[in-house]
Design a binder for these strands. Structure first.
Lengths: 342, 342
DNA sequence: TTTATTCCCGGGAGCGGTCCCAGAAGGTAA
DNA sequence: TTACCTTCTGGGACCGCTCCCGGGAATAAA
């Protein structure tokens, strides 16, 4: 506004050197006499000069910022993921642009396209609906333009490094846990319905696998759309239509919390009448009454490692990414929402 | 990477016009024959051309992105604030860069300086410690370089539009509510201790005012640092040192939740033995057992309006900002964590 | 002292847009 | 037909930085 465009020339003048030299000291490059470097540094500091990042971006084709696309920042799992990602970004001196897709593919696409305008060196994205058109878009992007790392999405492209929680295993373990407690009528509130996320789908698979292994025929699955309120409704419906159910496995803690509320409202005691288990490991689940048993995902680490992977790729440090795909194991946290069936 | 720098010249060539014309249609400016506009648009679409935002930023001195600095994305209040801000940003076609300060002034400063490198048209910041050096930094920034809007911080500068919740009023009302229920021994768990945030400080004032008005002499104040675990500890300490207390006013819901846990662990029943009330109105508080009474802040609106105000300012639509400062009133949400004292 | 080498540093050509200005085309009035 | 507007369009000068290249100064080797 007011400031007389204090640019690199100004610094050069003031320090009695050329802009090239100033550029060198800014970027900490070799080939500058120590005394000159000091002199220039001083001027930079005195004038509080900040190199214009647009110009820098234009000339160097690097913006030092990465785009993060997530589903909903309001969800504690994603918030923690973002926190992890940000930590790494900060450490590596990257900025972060945030975009929420609100679980809808169109917005997800819109976010990505926004990032495509060269304002971002790479994209870190987590989950989202698993639609083929998004997949193909990502494929195209990855081969032509941007570096990208994807979390919680199974996409077949060796150019795109992936990080995934072992969701089949999680679904299996959650269900198995219930079975081991003696439950036989076990329902599952899954995430999305149509256009299901890969995570949700895999957890269903794990659920089915555990059931099959135990010789239990009845699969009882209701959609909860990864939302507390929906899960609340679903639980009511479920318990009305299947009063024989003694245990429910929710595909997220948030849904388990909604379910807990529904159960209470139906005068069903947890865990005496119904045992419940969630997935995610958000703080909130531990604060419920009763605290909810869950399989915890390392959200912070996922964010951190995802970002790390992306930055490495940007720096060309990526090795054979296909063999490098990371799989996170979830951790069972036993609390008081589950009990043995007599 | 692979793509042959498809730039504005390429489009111009392909469409048989000059880059100027292409620029005109990109930015939707007048003075282009309809047929030419169509032709150019088609080429742009066919080649999936995205104007480089660094170049754009350099030439136009506008980046169409704003920087958001908050304390902790993991806190539901901030998450909701961000969500509101993002909505408005999207609507106005702005991008958003996110930076967390983790409640420490140094990081806050660091974030702002990152944004200063011309990668951002303006800054929306919420709260943070109220230190003078930050204030003076912001003052300097606002008068020389960047547009900035500040939420939950009292800073004396007519160049900086402000949005504040009425924290004194909130503290007053929360305490008054307790008093009206017949409580006389009312403790307060405040936010920060030293370098207190303005919000925290004002709420304390409100607490004191209500007490004074009711002729209650004993001010019992402990710091909870706006953190659940700290508040948990503080509550235990408080109830040990002041077993006569029958009601506690927490400066945030998160702290009230921590306090609730402490109370339960001490075999104190809420609300029969101790009434508690929080501030913020986060979803989580409603899910506790018992649901916690609170004064809700319109977090989403605060984000939305803050962003709106900033964007207006960027567009030069700002009127006399000083008279324009917004004050939000909080809304009392009565739940089951408070009861009449017999 | 002369000749190489190395070390520093400056100049200039972009990077991909915006925007002002001037000129070509086409339309209208004298 | 000529003069004069309007409407469209093209050219070129930046925006502030990076990076390559070439030259001068300083130092080492001959």
């Amino acid at each position: 506004m007011k400031n007389k465009n204090i640019d690199i020339y100004k610094i050069a003048d003031e320090a009695g050197v050329s802009k090239s030299t100033v550029s060198r000291v800014i970027n900490n490059k070799a080939g500058v006499k120590d005394s000159t470097r000091k002199k220039v540094s001083k001027v930079i500091k005195d004038l509080n000069y900040k190199p214009n990042s647009s110009a820098k971006g234009l000339a160097s084709k690097k913006t030092q910022t990465i785009g993060l696309v997530i589903s909903d920042i309001t969800d504690p799992f994603f918030a923690m993921f973002v926190k992890g990602a940000e930590r790494k970004a900060m450490e590596a001196n990257y900025n972060m642009m945030l975009a929420n897709s609100h679980w809808v593919v169109e917005e997800e696409l819109k976010c990505i396209q926004m990032f495509e305008e060269g304002r971002v060196d790479g994209i870190l994205m987590i989950s989202g609906g698993s639609e083929k058109r998004l997949d193909s878009y990502l494929n195209n992007l990855a081969t032509h333009n941007l570096d990208i790392v994807v979390v919680d999405r199974k996409i077949e492209n060796e150019k795109i490094p992936k990080l995934n929680a072992d969701n089949v295993d999680a679904g299996y373990r959650a269900t198995k846990y219930l079975i081991d407690l003696g439950h036989k009528r076990i329902a599952h509130i899954k995430g999305e319905d149509v256009a299901s996320s890969d995570a949700s789908r895999d957890r269903v698979k794990g659920y089915q696998k555990a059931l099959a292994e135990a010789g239990i025929k009845d699969e009882i699955i209701y959609p909860g759309y990864f939302a507390r309120e929906e899960a609340n409704q679903a639980t009511k419906k479920l318990m009305t239509e299947h009063p024989e159910v003694t245990a429910i496995f929710y595909s997220s803690d948030m849904m388990a919390i909604g379910g807990l509320k529904a159960l209470k409202s139906m005068e069903l005691r947890v865990p005496q009448d119904v045992s419940i288990i969630g997935i995610d490991g958000i703080e909130m689940a531990a604060l419920m009454d009763p605290p909810i048993t869950t399989l915890a995902q390392p959200a912070f680490e996922m964010g951190y490692l995802g970002m790390e992977k992306l930055i490495k790729k940007l720096n060309g440090e990526a090795s054979n990414s296909h063999t490098e795909d990371v799989i996170f194991q979830m951790e069972l946290i036993e609390r008081d929402s589950t009990s043995k069936l007599d």
